[in-house]
Amino acid sequence: MKDQAVRSRKSWQLTLIYASIGVLLLISLFPVYWMFIGSVKQRGEFYTSPPVFVPKQLEWENFGRALERGGAKGIKDSLVVAGLSSLLAIVLGSLAAYSIARYGTGGDNLSFWILSIRMAPPVAGVIPIFMLMRYARLLDTYSALVLAYCLFNLPFAVWLIKGFFEDIPADMEGAALVDGFNRLQVFWRIALPLAVPALIVTGLFCFIFSWNEFLFALVLTRSRVTTLPVIISGMVGGHEIMWGEISALSVLTSLPVAALALLLQRYLVRGLTLGAMRG
């Protein structure tokens, strides 16, 4: 009898837990759902009360119009900027990370100085970098954004890759040195191949940060370079808000990143805490 009571209390508790998870998930996903249906709603369906929770027919036209009104160029520019800056970050970052992880170059001071740059408020960096790019006549170019994004991608890459190198045992590298390899060969032939997955993970994180970045893109570009967040923000600020088109562009902006994040799920904790938590 008592056993049964305990068991029924247990199953009641379990139901409660599942129900709570369900409610939290619903709240968490509702805005995402709203974005998706917004991207396939017809113009009129945005101006009804009660709002349209399930669109009657799917208006894919929104995507076409969004791409025409700067969306296509936005995707291209975002890809170029995010791609180049991530590449730069992992190439240069892996060198510095290796040096710091294996040889303790610069000691704690160097690595925490690098970290502190990552933590600094972007608004403090954007004013001087705007002036710098203005004098260098780089405003509204890819270079301006790629360079500016180094400011947070490089420190991030150094820290994350450094953690990965610290995880790889140095025994093999030591043996290779004894065998007459020089340190450059050891890095190139032994350490780097082992770190390839780490570099990919780091690169994807840098890509996401750059893809989503807004403040620097807003300040450093005008019309020749327009990344997706700037386009979306511009469309929101327009005279007549094109709800469907902006929603479609939002979906196009979010989907690739969400997909990448799923790939990275195992490393998400580690990446977002700059290696402070191993996850």
């Binding site: 709002p51 989503n212 997706l228």
Partner: peptide, 28 residues
């Protein structure tokens, strides 16, 4: 994984989506 989706969305997009949600007359 589903719980993680909000983190990945660009803050600009989040801002726009919540504008839609908060809309005085037509928001959910």
């Amino acid at each position: 994984s589903l719980f993680l989706i909000p983190i990945t969305i660009a803050p600009v997009v989040v801002g726009f989506q919540w504008r839609v949600i908060y809309h005085e007359s037509f928001g959910p």
